[in-house]
Computed example of a mutant assay.
Amino acid sequence: MNKMNVLSIVTVISLFISFFLAFFLVTVKTEHKTSNRLFAFFLIITAIDISDPLISLVADVPSNPGMLRNSLAFLQIPAFYLYVLSVCYSDFKLKPKHLLHLLPFLAVNLVLLPHFYMVDLASKINFIEHRQSRIELQFNHILFHIQIVTYFIAVFILLRKAKKLYLENYAGISINSYHWLFQFTSVLTILYLIVILKNIFKFSEYPYISEWIKIGILVFELFIICWYLYKALNNPGLFRNIDSRLQLVSDIVLEEKKNEPQTVSDHEFSEDLTKLKKYMMEEKPFLNPSLTIQDISDAIGIPTRELSVLINHRVGQHFYDFVNTYRVEEAMDILKDGTKTKVTILEILYEVGFNSKSSFNTAFKKHTGNTPTFYRKNL
C-alpha cells in the first residue's frame, strides 16, 4: 500500500468521525448549545483542513477555493479558544468583540489577494511552484505559528484562572472536568507543535519528510477525535459552572490593600469565622453536592466577596477544600459508627455530599492520609 492510499484511507475515516461528531454536537438536546456549536465548528474546519489528500485526487491545479480552504486553518485555534471559554464560564455569550478572532484569517487572505486570488491560472501555478520563495506564504506560515503559540498560552492561562475561581467559589465535582480539559488541550498542543515541525521541513531541503509527518498528523488527529467522542458520550457535563464576573481572591486582596487598607479587623474576622463554623456544624450545608460560596453567603449574611476572602485568604484554604474537610469529617463519623458497618463506602460518599468516588477518595486521603476503606478496616 503506497503513501497516497494510506493518506486517503486515514483521511476518509477522520472525515467521517469528525462530521459525525459535529452532527451529534449540533443536534443533541442540551442547554450548552453555544459550546457544542463552537466545537462542532472547530471539528468541521479541521476536517476541511485535513481533506487535502482527497481534494488533490480530483483537483490537481491551484484554485481560489483551494487556497481559501487552506487559509481556514487560521480559524481552528480561535474556535477552540472560544470553545474552552464557553465551557469554563456558564454566562458566556458570543459578542461582536469576538469577531476580532477573524483578523488573522482575513489578513492572510488579504495578503494573497494581489498575487494569487486576482491572477490567472498560469500565474497561480507559477506562484505555487515557487512557493518556497514567496514572501506571502512565508508570512502566512510565520503568522500561523505565532497564532498557535499565542492562543495555546492564552488557553492554559484561561484554564488556570478558571480552576482557581472554581476552587475558591464551588464545591461540586466539576474540577474533574478541568483535568480532562487540561489534558485535551495538552494533547492538541502537542499536535500543533508537530504541525509546526511539518511546516519547517516543508520549507527546508527535505520536503519529503513533511509528507511523512503529515501521515502521522492525520493518524494522531483520528486518535484525538475518537478520544473526544468517547469522553463526550461518557461525560456530557463539563466545567460550565463558573460565573465570569467572579474575581480571584488574590485580585480582591490586592485591590483592598490599594483602596482600603485593613478593611476587616482581626475582631471582625474572628466573629465572621465563628459564625461560619457554627453554621457549617449545625446546618451542615456541605451535604449539598452543588454547594457554592454564594449559598453560604446568603445563609449567614456575610457578603460573598468578604466571605471569599475570609475562607480563601484568611483561613488559608480554597473553598473547595474547606467544604470537603467537613464532608470528610462527616464521613469519618459514619465510618466510626458501629451501627453503620453495613453502609457501603459508595453510600457514605453520596450521603456526605460527594458526587464521585475518585473525588471522595482524593479528599479523604488528603485529610487523613488513608483511603476510606483502609480507615474503616483499621478502626
Rank of each mutant, 00 (worst) to 15 (best):
I302S: 04
I293T: 06
V264E: 14
D333Y: 14
E268K: 13
Q262W: 13
D333P: 05
L238P: 01
S265I: 08
L229G: 04
V309E: 06
P285A: 05
L291F: 02
D298P: 10
K336D: 14
E329T: 06
N235S: 14
F286E: 01
L248H: 07
L335F: 00
S308V: 07
M280V: 01
L310N: 03
E256G: 10
D243N: 05
L273D: 06
L254H: 12
R327D: 00
F269E: 09
I302M: 04
E329D: 10
D298A: 15
Q262H: 15
K275Y: 08
A232K: 03
F319P: 04
L307F: 08
M332F: 10
N288D: 13
E255R: 14
V328W: 01
V253E: 01
F286W: 15
L291E: 03
L238H: 08
A232V: 02
Q247R: 15
E260F: 05
R245W: 03
G338C: 07
S290T: 09
D251E: 15
V323A: 03
F319W: 00
F286G: 03
L229E: 04
P303V: 05
V328M: 03
E256N: 14
D298E: 11
L248D: 13
P236H: 04
S290C: 05
S308Q: 06
I300S: 14
D243L: 04
K257N: 08
H313L: 08
H267R: 08
I242K: 02
K278C: 06
V343E: 12
E260R: 07
P289Y: 00
L273R: 06
D266G: 15
N259G: 04
L248M: 10
L238G: 04
G301L: 11
H318Y: 15
E255K: 15
